[in-house]
Design a protein around this nucleic acid. Structure first.
Length: 116
DNA sequence: ATTCTTACA
DNA sequence: TGTAAGTA
């Protein structure tokens, strides 16, 4: 399938699909026309990349994690240092959660001082 | 109309 | 990440 179709089906923009290829996350074949030719498996892969990107993972992190994630569900594998990387991601998310909580409180305080 | 690459008021 | 430009 061409890039436009996998884009619609995966929710990943055409722009990002091309970018992920330069980063080695997705490697579609090329047709004689030069057009990228994606497989059905690439659709699942693109969706997983979207999920991880939404989770705040960097390209580098995804490059290490993707080959260790099997089914659509976060599943471990005989991969080694993965646990450490995932722990790091978890801490990163926790810090982000704390920052957001502070921001939430700030806005909430303004709202509170609005209608006393 | 769609995709490709390159580049950025 | 989007978009414009010039092709294929």
């Amino acid at each position: 399938m061409k890039i436009g179709e996998i884009s619609e089906r995966s929710g990943v923009s055409v722009r990002m699909l091309r970018y992920y290829e330069t980063e080695g996350l997705l490697t579609p074949l090329r047709r004689d026309s030069g057009y990228r030719d994606y497989s059905e498996a690439d659709v699942e892969e693109a969706r997983r990349i979207r999920q991880l990107a939404d989770a705040g993972l960097t390209i580098e992190a995804m490059r290490d994690l993707l080959p260790c994630i099997i089914s659509p569900e976060p599943r471990f594998d005989p991969c080694e240092n993965l646990r450490a990387r995932l722990d790091g991601e978890l801490e990163k998310l926790d810090r982000k959660l704390e920052d957001m909580a502070r921001s939430r409180d700030l806005i909430a305080s303004y709202i509170a001082s609005l209608s006393p």
